[in-house]
Design a protein around this nucleic acid. Structure first.
Length: 290
DNA sequence: TTCCAGGAATCAA
DNA sequence: TTGATTCATGGA
């Protein structure tokens, strides 16, 4: 089943490969991934995206929602502050988008992301899905595919089995989170009704979820533009691009992110993140320079 | 305050 | 080839 979706200024490569989501594989000029338990192949066309599925999905709402196809990127960009770093970041990667992921998959993925690099996170997510996710139909019957395991499925998995997916010390965090969701202690659907601050507080009550991971979930799953995840890359971007001459303390930096970037701060964060990761050479580490 | 837990890729030496 | 670095959370 193939369908085209008209969209302007959508950078599929950058969006699917920008550390937001971890179940996408480049296949020639296309991307293959799994969204809500459905295999899908995506291809960029001029002013459109083409999607291919194995079965007739009926409605395509799950896909258009995930990809944020109704979002008006041009309008979002006009809300950015007119500063040089953001101008350069947007110019460096036009069409970069934010995805709208499933909250549980997003939360689980970022719990196991802590102190891991993107490639390792992808590996862990693949192993978890293979071992504990429900089988789903794919284009090649000899190649079994799996949905990302639900919280209910993971809640019953012994920690040792999670460790075999290379989760390391994060295994007990994922296990506890799965049990909290499966047992109803935390209702991910309810978070949509809460303010970002309160939702963040709920999320950080889970073990293994600090402010950075909570903000990733709030931004990448719930679309909260007032969630501004600060990881080592964004920290570097803020320091080098906005405060090149002094080293502000983290408090000052956080306050800066809360006010400077306007109503679409989350989008600004994504552009800065992608910019420092791809455009700029790794800074040469000079001993004890600071 | 500092260290460590798991671990695979990436660089510098 | 070896060795250092990367990643972010929580506990000792």
């Amino acid at each position: 089943m193939t369908a085209p979706f008209a969209v302007q200024n959508y950078n599929l490569d950058a969006t699917l490969d920008s550390g937001q989501a971890f179940r996408w594989w480049r296949s020639g000029a296309s991307w293959e991934g799994i969204i809500h338990g459905r295999w899908v192949r995506l291809r960029a066309l001029p002013d459109a995206l083409e999607a291919e599925t194995v079965e007739d999905p009926g409605t395509w709402d799950w896909l258009t929602h995930y990809l944020g196809l109704t979002e008006n990127l041009e309008e979002i960009l006009t809300t950015f502050p007119a500063d040089e770093p953001l101008r350069a970041a947007v110019q460096a990667c036009p069409g970069l988008r934010l995805l709208r992921q499933d909250p549980w998959e997003c939360l689980a993925s970022f719990i196991l992301s802590s102190t891991k690099q993107i490639i390792q996170i992808r590996q862990c997510v693949a192993l978890l899905s293979r071992d504990f996710g429900s089988p789903i139909p794919g284009p090649d019957p000899t190649q079994p595919l799996h949905a990302f395991p639900t919280a209910l499925q993971l809640a019953d998995v012994p920690e040792s089995a999670l460790r075999s997916c290379k989760l390391g010390f994060r295994a007990k965090y994922l296990s506890a989170a799965a049990r909290a969701i499966a047992g109803g202690d935390l209702d991910l659907d309810q978070l949509t009704k809460l303010t970002t601050a309160v939702a963040r507080e709920r999320l950080t009550q889970l073990p293994g979820v600090g402010p950075k991971i909570a903000n990733c979930v709030l931004l990448f799953a719930y679309g909260r533009q007032d969630a501004f995840p600060v990881d080592v890359w964004v920290l570097r971007a803020l320091e080098e691009l906005y405060f090149p001459r002094r080293r502000p303390n983290p408090q000052t930096l956080i306050r800066f992110t809360e006010t400077h970037f306007g109503p679409n701060a989350g989008y600004a964060q994504q552009y800065l993140f992608h910019y420092v990761r791809t455009q700029r050479p790794r800074p040469t580490r000079i001993g004890s320079g600071d």
